[in-house]
Design a protein around this nucleic acid. Structure first.
Length: 234
DNA sequence: AAATGACTCAACCGCGTACCT
DNA sequence: AAGGTACGCGGTTGAGTCATT
């Protein structure tokens, strides 16, 4: 029997999204929401499969996304959550508002994993690596790590891994506000009026991310269930 | 300045599962 | 209950960028 492809392979564009495509997708979702991802590309006039549209929206175009590096606190949270949940990136991302599972996954694979290894911690089990492996791994990674990765480490008495970074870095604290992609800025500017009407986002300070419900969305509740789902762990 | 290697991250693929008929 | 469909998730890839030689 086998599984049918998610979309007709013929005539479906793949690869990086153009500004024009982004624009189409944004404006379609702003006006209509996403009733059914499979129908979105057709209705929005895009030669993409629904899956690709969903991914593009959730991972890049969503207006509530934060960009840039994680703060040390967030990074610590990711480590703690990973220790408890394993590679369940969507669950981990749900605890970090504005972050996507894809982003967390990438950050884990490119930064955090290396840091843990460097610190002598098995990134899979979150237990200390044995000495032999530890010395080998530290030798092998010492030559390749970047200076920006340099950080202090300390381990609490309970054995929990603690990361501490030089928080004086100007890019770090402001990664949320200033990390916006110029292209995205441009795209969003084009839709400013719509955005103002449709998305009155509370600022990060205003949102109680500890609550399950998450920010209140101006569109109808039915169409934003996906977001509420994101907000709830488990 | 050019070549090479390392790194990053957006995007794709395929599987699992929930939902519908 | 069984089969089909759509969505979401996690793993993987590869093009672009950055750093080093």
């Amino acid at each position: 029997m086998g599984r049918r492809p998610c979309c007709d392979k013929l005539g479906v564009k793949k690869g990086p999204w153009s500004a024009e495509e982004d624009k189409k997708l944004i404006s379609f979702i702003l006006t209509n929401g996403h009733c059914c991802w499979r129908a979105v590309p057709k209705l929005a006039g895009l030669l993409r499969c629904g899956k690709s549209c969903r991914l593009r929206w959730t991972n890049y175009l969503r207006p509530d996304l934060k960009r840039g590096l994680l703060s040390p606190a967030d990074e610590q949270l990711v480590i703690d959550l990973h220790a408890r949940l394993g590679n369940r990136w969507s669950k981990i991302a749900a605890m970090l508002p504005g972050r996507t599972d894809n982003e967390i996954k990438n950050l884990w694979n490119t930064h955090i994993k290396k840091k843990l290894v460097k610190m002598g911690v098995d990134p899979v089990t979150h237990k200390p690596l044995d000495r032999k492996a530890n010395s080998v791994s530290s030798q092998s990674t010492a030559t390749t790590e970047s200076k920006s990765d340099q950080q202090l480490q300390s381990r609490g008495t309970d054995g929990q891994i603690q990361l501490s970074e030089n928080t004086s870095s100007p890019t770090e604290a402001s990664s949320n506000a200033d990390g916006a992609d110029p292209l995205l800025s441009c795209l969003w500017e084009d839709n400013t009026s719509l955005l103002d009407e449709l998305w009155q986002f509370p600022s990060n300070e205003d949102v109680d991310y500890g609550s399950v419900a998450g920010p209140v969305w101006p569109w109808d509740e039915g169409s934003c269930e996906w977001l509420l789902d994101d907000q709830a762990l488990g």
